[in-house]
Amino acid sequence: MVEVNFGRRRPETVVGLRRVAELKEWEGNRIGAAVTWRRVEREGPGAYAQAARTVGSPQIRNAGTIGGNLGTASPAGDGHPFLAAVDASIEVASATGRRLVPWNEFFVGPKRSSLQQGELITAVVLPERLPERHGFGKVGVRNAMVISTVCAVVTRDHDGRTTVALGSVGPTVLRVPAAEEMISAESNPSEADLAEFARLVSEGVRPITDHRSTEQYRRHAAGVLARRLLERCLR
């Protein structure tokens, strides 16, 4: 709609999806693409609900959907780190069938996804079982209506397996395998382990300098944020 309002796009044909009830269905780990952030905020699992609460404003969360967030495929999309951290898939459908796309094959670049002509995002499919602990955090210049400078989700399971996914610090949302492997091996991380985890995250992200922040700041903030989220999981 923003592109239409600014005269950048004038499609002759539009298809309204707001009243397609099937797209709003939420059954277990399959969440329909037209589920709004408002609903995720109220009914979603921990870190996903936390992320939903930071999306735009009440007005945006009432109208904005998880499918729309995916379609935009912004590197700063606040919903993406959770999906990446738990290895979710995106269900897409066309006239010829449905396919499940793992998150890391869905995002291909800044505002670019592997969605093909004629395909519609129909749902997000989470794993059957989520890690025991997970949390979302975001750094931005103010509390509301803000695009992330860095956003992240850290998960930690009962066996110590840890994942960390970050947004706004690369062309797409990304994971940091080196940091994950290092900290997953520590059953009771020490102060030095936590510092090393933060260092590996800072080293592993791929931020740029733009009008919102600098590469250096984003790198630093990514490490600090990931460490804080991990500490919350360990509490």
Binding site: M1, N5, F6, G56, Q59, I60, N62, A63
Partner: peptide, 27 residues
């Protein structure tokens, strides 16, 4: 603002406050 930032176009649509500049009228 025409991009959902300012809220001056706020309306209630089916019970929820939304920015009417971001709602497709056909919807």
């Amino acid at each position: 603002c025409s991009q959902g930032e300012c809220g001056s176009c706020s309306i209630v649509l089916d019970g929820e406050v939304v920015c009417s500049c971001l709602v497709l009228a056909a919807d």
